[in-house]
Design a protein around this nucleic acid. Structure first.
Length: 577
RNA sequence: GCCCCGGUAGCUCAGUGGACUAGAGCGGUCGCCUUCUAAGCGACGGGUCGCAGGUUCGAAUCCUGCCCGGGGCGCCA
């Protein structure tokens, strides 16, 4: 339908340009489904984009395009010129219903491109260091990365979900020391730091309190989970670990425990990673040294102030950055560069980093440096996500990472459920702030809670099927359906909406903006629920068998798209609610 | 000071070059048991698209400047 129109238009545009001796590449006119049905099944701005090139008023060109289109009944049934020079096109009545047959034929594949690219894509997301429970920012990123992955899979890419974690750096040492300190406190051989200085990072830190030494490190991890881990170690090992370094069993135990919790949290959200990639492996395999050596060879590295610097200014960036500290320890930047190079060596053709706004500054350095090492720069993509705030009872819930006083993903998922959590986290554009309205998320009334609204629209398709079976009616096969019987405006609206689905998937995937899927589903459900509600003007189940079959076909088509959409978002598609 | 993201209805947000009425949800007001789940439906009200210039046949959408909010600018990750 649309493809033929697009092709035909391209042909006409080319001809018009040739006629005036313009051989430059032709502009690509838009072909859109207008908001207002009165503007046709499709509308194109071809005449408007050609106006300047042809040096003729757009209306005049529009007339020529219109008559060219009208000459071919296979693309247009009726054509009209409107406004400043739009050409509105109507399809013949029966062609309108093609989409219904197509959906029933293609089933779950409807909306996915016929010729997948099959590119090997890696999506790296969450990548939180195991120093504490996942925050809502991580939660948003988890849903975003997973949904994006599902979208790319739907469009035919071969996706690997990867979680990178830094298990070698200072953060993990501090975690180990924090656990050890709590352990010593619990044994009564160390004192906790006084409460009042915890919020003042640079405050004087007493060596001892009440005659006991203070073991807790500055900038240490304050959450209760640290004490819990310490308590478990104490239960298992008694006081035998007093002489152990914080960097030893305390650290490894804490890391393992927290990491297990990550997996459990993510599993509750139906998120599974294909690869967990450790920073330490880059050291063990010499990849860090190699990257540094290669950068040095390319003249992109210099030594100053006892540190090793990346000549980032030469790569077109704001300032140079430290790769190896004067302590001899690399910064996070160097492993990141080596890691990205490894991604391509491992065979990925495209890598997408999903990162929070707090890391965004870092990205250009990694990308440029990786490019300098031979990686294809344009195939290293960033999908940025902004922070999440919580609103409860009309007020913002205060959160403090510093005091480890924050709502975790676990807690919120438990409160609202995985389906609602995922829907709320994905329904906003990723690079804007997200205000998570807990009251709305907890709302059980399906007409108010958008996640339930969509799920219920799906459940109702099964409700009708159940009702039909009770009446001894089975769902129709493709041959038994005459879509032309669907002629009410509400039904045409639904068909128009269903036809948009492939474009929604394509656009959401290509722009890396999964939120379009959530919006689309809400809109489709917003047509479907009211349609089912009006049981007087039209009922699916009726005493007209042909009409009933056509409407049951519509039920199946709507179900197919809703189920497919819910699956893309990682939500369940219940048959009953 | 510099960089990134945002500023659209009372609230939360879609829309980022196109047309007459700039959309949705929530909240508000009014009406309705009509149903294949009343866990419903319909109607109404509500907007100088942050401000000012510019480009364009056409700007919420592109450009410039400014204002406001968030984030970043570390030999932390």
């Amino acid at each position: 339908m649309k493809e033929r129109l697009v092709a035909k238009l391209a042909e006409i545009v080319r001809r018009e340009l040739d006629a005036v001796g313009d051989t430059a590449p032709a502009p690509v006119p838009s072909v859109e489904v207008p908001r207002q049905p009165e503007h046709g099944d499709f509308a194109t701005n071809a005449a408007l984009v050609l106006a300047r090139r042809l040096g003729r008023p757009p209306r005049e060109t529009a007339e020529r395009i219109a008559s060219a289109l009208a000459a071919d009944r296979s693309v247009a049934d009726r054509v009209e010129v409107a406004g400043p020079g739009f050409v509105n096109v109507w399809l013949a009545g029966d062609r309108w219903h093609e989409v219904l047959r197509q959906i029933l034929r293609d089933g779950a594949r409807f909306g996915c491109p016929a010729t997948p690219r099959g590119e090997r894509v890696q999506v790296e997301f969450v990548s939180a260091n195991p120093t504490g429970p996942l925050t809502l920012g991580h939660g948003r990123q988890a849903v975003l990365g997973d949904t994006l992955s599902r979208l790319l899979e739907a469009t035919g890419e071969s996706v690997t979900r990867e979680f990178y974690f830094n298990d070698g750096g200072r953060q993990m040492r501090v975690l180990g020391e924090s656990v050890k300190a709590r352990y010593l406190e619990q044994l009564g051989v160390a004192a906790p730091p006084p409460d009042e200085i915890l919020d003042a990072p640079e405050a004087a830190w007493p060596d001892e309190v009440d005659g006991l030494p203070v073991a807790f490190p500055k900038g240490g991890y304050l959450g209760d989970y640290v004490s819990d881990i310490a308590a478990e170690l104490r239960a298992k090992h008694g006081s035998s670990l007093v002489e152990e370094p914080g960097d030893g069993i305390f650290r490894s135990e804490a890391q393992a425990r927290i990491f297990d919790e990550f997996r459990a949290t993510l599993a509750a959200l139906r998120i599974r990673f294909d690869v967990f990639y450790n920073e330490t492996s880059l050291y063990e395999n010499g990849k860090i040294e190699e990257a540094l050596g290669d950068l040095r060879e390319k003249g992109l590295v210099y030594d100053a102030d006892g540190a090793v610097w990346l000549r980032a200014k030469d790569l077109g960036l704001d300032r140079d950055r430290v790769l190896v500290k004067s302590s001899g320890e690399p910064t996070y930047l160097l492993p990141d560069i080596a890691y990205h190079r490894e991604k391509f060596r491992r065979g990925f053709e495209r890598v997408i980093d999903v990162q929070g706004a707090d890391h965004i500054d870092q990205f250009p350095y990694v990308r440029k440096a990786a490019a300098a090492l031979g990686c294809p720069e344009e195939r290293i993509e960033l999908v940025m996500n902004q922070f999440v705030t919580l609103t409860r009872g009309g007020e913002t819930v205060k959160q403090s990472k510093r005091r480890a006083n924050y709502v975790t993903v676990d807690e919120l998922v438990e409160e609202v459920g995985a389906d609602v959590f995922r829907f709320f986290m994905i329904q906003r554009k990723a690079d804007g702030h997200l205000d998570f309205d807990v009251d709305l998320a907890r709302e059980q009334d399906w007409k108010k809670n958008p996640a339930y609204y969509v799920q219920y629209a799906h459940a109702r398709t099964h409700g009708i099927e159940r009702k039909a079976r009770e009446a001894g009616v089975s769902m129709p096969s493709l041959e038994e359906i005459d879509p032309a019987r669907l002629s009410l405006p509400e039904e045409i609206d639904l068909l128009r909406k269903l036809r948009e689905w492939p474009e929604v998937i394509e656009h959401a995937a290509e722009s890396r903006e999964p939120h379009h899927v959530a919006y689309y589903l809400r809109e489709l459900a917003g047509l479907w629920n009211p349609y089912l509600q009006d049981g007087v003007r039209h009922r699916v189940l009726s005493d007209d068998p042909d009409l009933q079959a056509a409407r049951l076909g519509l039920v199946l088509a709507v179900r197919t798209v809703l189920a497919g959409g819910l699956d893309l978002l990682g939500l369940s598609a219940p048959e009953q609610m």
